[in-house]
Design a protein around this nucleic acid. Sequence first.
DNA 1: CTGAAAGCGCTTACAG
DNA 2: CTGAAAGCGCTTACAG
Lengths: 343, 343
Amino acid sequence: MSKKSAITLQDIAKEAGVSRALVSFALNNAVQADGRKKYNVSEETEERIKEIAAKYNYRPNILARSLRVKRTSSIGVILPDISNPFFSTFARFIEDRAASRSYSAFFASTDESAARMEKAIENFVDKGIDGLIVAPCSGSEDLLRKVANNVIPVVLFDRDVEDCNVDKVLLDNSMGAQMAVRSLYGEGRRRIVMVSYSGRLSNIMDREAGYLRASAKLHIDENSYIYRADYNTCADDVGEIMRRIDFNCTDAVFFATNSLAVSGIREMLKMGVDISGKVGVATYDRGDSFDLFPYGFTSVVQPLDEFASRTFDLIVRRIEEPQAAMSKIIVSPELVKSDYYND
Amino acid sequence: MSKKSAITLQDIAKEAGVSRALVSFALNNAVQADGRKKYNVSEETEERIKEIAAKYNYRPNILARSLRVKRTSSIGVILPDISNPFFSTFARFIEDRAASRSYSAFFASTDESAARMEKAIENFVDKGIDGLIVAPCSGSEDLLRKVANNVIPVVLFDRDVEDCNVDKVLLDNSMGAQMAVRSLYGEGRRRIVMVSYSGRLSNIMDREAGYLRASAKLHIDENSYIYRADYNTCADDVGEIMRRIDFNCTDAVFFATNSLAVSGIREMLKMGVDISGKVGVATYDRGDSFDLFPYGFTSVVQPLDEFASRTFDLIVRRIEEPQAAMSKIIVSPELVKSDYYND
DNA sequence: CTGAAAGCGCTTACAG
DNA sequence: CTGAAAGCGCTTACAG
């Protein structure tokens, strides 16, 4: 590790008495598909060059290499907000996966704004990333199609975009919602409402569909109702929504997301609702601090490590084999019931 | 935004009938300190060149530029774990700050391992970052001194390292702890214990010092006691520690960190401790989901936005003016009391 | 006011 | 088995 007065190929070549090219060959001696080295350098020379490189702790200049080979081995990851626990955990898994495959990742947060997303992509492309992982915000559909078709490989995760022919890694959001509803049903709940977002994000819409479907199957859909908060004014909105719910004829609340649950449960506590007693709660995702919540509840948990590794592997494959067939990977959620404190 | 068949300076030069150099001048027309442009290009030519560039939506190749100017306008940020809410929030603020100043940031997580930290730094330096922001883990002191002296500008944040002459942005950890203790004291608590980590991280040690100091000042130090959990086995350890506390003669618990508080409070709930009634709770930091915790408690909150902007500005200054005097910025925490549900 | 030239550090097709 | 040469796309000191 040394930045100042870094040693170059040239320096090594001079000391070894060979050309720069030979040094490059010796150091990168790529083994081809047929098991033979691409370039033949005598073993003796190769050894000598490697020793010199090691002696000076030679580190190739990645910028120069990237400029030459027109690949940077880096990807961009576009998220709604990296400070959101769901996405920061995803980011961590991506970071690890990328490192293990000698890639690096840039992150950018959009705050659900298509304009910010466009800026971020432009910025990333300028930097020379080889591919893009995106959890798209609504309104970014056209942009995404354009980018995927003309600019750079794209893999979608978490949220789907219609008519966008790219690789995708998605959760089975409908299944998760159905699992949650069935779990509440299993507790004897029959009058289950859902608190969700307005907007047209595919994951949210699928969760709503799953909620309705399970309710219908269980014949409790006459009591189904979906309350929707505006994404941007979430916290305030949710409080207001919760107050509109008549808890005298409501058994359970199913929250479409973690942050809805935080605001919503908070309001329920303020209202003095008998949580997990008279009124059951289920939610998508659960932050670590949910463990502080001293009532039983059910959550739909997404396997973020798998999510991240699948997504990452897909973008790398797309970069290396642009013509490979498109994949759409649907990951199954898990149901976690915590009734820790009711023991 | 276009990657494939990107247009180059050369192309523009040809169409404009001038040299590449002139195009570069026209597009970058730097205004110098004396208010004059560094290179004189006739206005007419400059206009023409700019129009052509705009027409083709020319984007300079950043790799090529970086290679030439030996600066990448990127920094590395080394954190214990980006999936930890404290650090992911910090990351988000860094991201925004960097973008607003046309920098980009790489992130790496160390899991408190000095070996991983070294790898990450090596990796970043290879990538050509101009500077490094580090929340150092214990055991990384020598490495950090070496890097700061011989390799690349470094700014420390969150945790201090002795005998390391670099810019630093730190919280007044002792003050925060004192505020917490005084707050508990104000509630009438006199027998306050602290739950902390073993190890030698400066921020933790300062919090312990603050706890002891405030206790002494308030003459309640005869009841002071610091329980210490092993960092790596935290969750299990904390449960065991909590069970060792005799809550018959303990008024309050002060947790040194958010994650200690989560595990610790969880255990207290299991034990049936009358939280915020008989036993008060205070903690450093608070995740969003702390809002779900339906008891009053006090937390020491760090102004992460200021933390991030100060840190970022410092590293940029150091990059641009390597000889500037070293700064050590101490940021004050804020005390937040939540007794929302006790209203 | 403008341009030719050198060079950042690497890789690779080509020639021997 | 090895090397000279070209070139990735840019910037900048220098010369006119």
